[in-house]
């Protein structure tokens, strides 16, 4: 009964479950806020949202379970018709639309980054940074592998054309992934409690929505 507060208990305490729920919802909201925020790179006329930045960051910072749950929750909120997807859109239309495949790949992208960071264990900022870099690269590749064929099918493009179209996004995705590599270790260092996370015995309910 007098164990120090930081001792790992196999079951998450009510306070931890409340915090997990808050983190999952807050990162779902962060992803929405990022999707609603477009940043104009000075060299390019097209505004780019930070949506994929938030997706990758959720995995890196929250770990595989909570990260996947956060992005699954984000998609569920969007699917419910709320305007949380890039540019203030929402609804099932976004899933049915040309870029629906990318959306559907997002929870898995967060999962991949989270697994990479967990596999690296507790290392210094540099080690964590490397793990995040590996994770975001794999996750981005996974997103393309799902998103591009769906894009091709929905718009009746051939696969090669769809990949060409996709190449237009690669530089932006690279910048956003790099931002995650810089930001995630700093956030994890500022909040060590985030690393104390392990898969709860019963998964967070939000995962089911993914």
């Amino acid at each position: 009964m007098t164990a120090p507060a930081t001792t790992r208990t196999p079951r998450r305490t009510p306070a931890e479950r409340a915090r997990d729920l808050a983190l999952i919802a807050t990162f779902a909201a962060l992803t929405a806020a990022c999707a609603l925020t477009s940043v104009a790179f000075s060299a390019v006329p097209v505004p780019v949202t930070l949506q994929t930045f938030a997706v990758l960051l959720a995995g890196a910072v929250l770990g595989p379970w909570r990260g996947t749950a956060a992005i699954g929750l984000y998609l569920a909120v969007g699917a419910a018709g709320l305007p949380v997807f890039a540019g203030g859109t929402g609804g099932l239309a976004s899933f049915a639309g040309p870029s629906g495949g990318y959306l559907m790949a997002f929870p898995f992208a967060a999962l991949v980054v989270g697994l990479a960071v967990r596999a690296a264990g507790r290392r210094g900022p540099l080690g964590t940074g490397v793990a995040v870099a590996v994770g975001v690269t794999a996750a981005t590749a996974l997103t393309y592998a799902v998103g591009v064929p769906v894009l091709a099918a929905r718009t009746a493009m051939d696969a090669a054309a769809a990949w060409t179209f996709n190449w237009g996004f690669v530089p932006f995705d690279a910048v956003k992934a790099a931002l995650v590599v810089v930001a995630a270790p700093a956030v994890l260092r500022a909040f060590p409690m985030l690393r104390g996370a392990r898969a709860p015995r019963a998964l967070a309910p939000e995962i089911a929505a993914a």
């Binding site: 409340a18 915090r19 807050t26 910072v61 956030v187 500022a190 909040f191």
Partner: peptide
């Protein structure tokens, strides 16, 4: 981002 995580932690306290 740091303030976002801080906000989440306080929100967790409120839920609890």
């Amino acid at each position: 981002l740091l303030r976002t995580v801080g906000h989440a932690v306080r929100t967790g306290e409120a839920i609890h």
